[in-house]
Simulated scan of single mutants.
Amino acid sequence: RKMIRAHDLDAIMISSPHSMHYEQAKYALGQGLHVLVEKPLTISSKHTRSLIRQADKKGKILLVSYQRNFMAPHLYARELIQQGVIGEIRGVVSYVTQNWGGVKGWRLVPELSGGGMFLDTGSHLVASTLWITGLEPLEVSAFLDNVDKDVDINMVVNVRFKGGAYGTLNTFGNAKVHDERIAIHGSEGCIVFHLHQWAVKSVLVNDEPMQIPKRIQENTPDAAFFRMIRNGGKGYELPHFALAVAQVSEAAYKSVEQGKPVKVARI
């Protein structure tokens, strides 16, 4: 707050522990600033919806740093699905692995992080899956293993989506290295992503390598954020998918707590 009051700013980037995002982003938007927030946007669906509404009302850019949503294969996959190339989506299978054995600091403190690997690295996976497919989650059933930590390390999340599709969104934090796959299956075909050690290894469309048009340009959240500010918001979309990410995460933890499937909150 002191920094914002002391300087004539146009925008701000928030890269603090997850539980602090809401209050910091709310204040920045209230001061008329564009805001770039590290994932997740917030740890609460209520707070996420509130920030989206505030950004819309203020006419400010509120962007979440989900890098995969700016990568060329992910951009093109979203376009193919919107065009109906793989037909009606019937199911998705997504997982990400990582070695959380050496993770220290606030990420292991529930009051600061809001959750473990599912809310952290897993947030990228959930965001990519929901943003690419446009699927709307309705109900969640989840299981987790803390592996002797105060936050979740492994988590299996089963989701029922609007329209009849089903899927799994899984995180495994006691693996050796990063590995990530998203398989999207439709009535007319499929798209399968494979990332390993933080790099895209392959993207297959109906078991053939994806051919990305030259017009699809690789980007980053930071570069896109600055470009959107300079061009008056051209190409910007309110991050409604970030609300779906928060809703799934919230329902997943509640499902574990209650030991039963939980319907996704509608606020």
Rank of each mutant, 00 (worst) to 15 (best):
W198M: 13
I212W: 10
Q211D: 15
H196S: 12
H194K: 12
H196E: 14
E218T: 04
N231T: 14
H194Y: 14
R266A: 07
P239F: 07
L204E: 11
S255W: 03
F193M: 10
N219F: 00
E250K: 02
M210D: 07
D222L: 13
A242W: 02
H240D: 08
Q258D: 09
P261H: 06
P213R: 08
A199M: 13
Y236I: 01
K201A: 08
N206E: 09
G235M: 05
K201F: 02
A224I: 04
Q247L: 10
G259M: 07
Q211Y: 02
A252G: 05
K214F: 12
T220V: 01
Q258M: 14
D222N: 05
E257D: 11
A252F: 02
V262K: 05
E218D: 15
I212T: 09
Y253D: 03
G232I: 09
K263Y: 05
N206Y: 09
K234Y: 08
R230V: 06
P221V: 07
F226C: 03
Y253R: 02
W198D: 14
E208R: 15
K201R: 14
H240N: 07
S255G: 06
V203K: 10
K234H: 10
H194I: 06
V256C: 13
F241Q: 00
L238E: 05
H194C: 04
V264I: 10
R215P: 02
W198P: 00
E250M: 01
M210V: 07
R227V: 04
P213A: 10
S249A: 11
G232K: 03
A251N: 05
I212K: 07
P213M: 11
E250D: 15
A265T: 08
M228I: 10
E208Y: 08
E237S: 14
D207M: 07
L243Q: 08
L238S: 13
E218Q: 14
V203D: 12
K263Q: 06
I229D: 11
D207H: 11
P261M: 02
W198Q: 13
E257F: 07
A244V: 00
F226E: 12
V200P: 12
S202G: 03
T220H: 12
R215H: 15
A246T: 05
K254I: 03
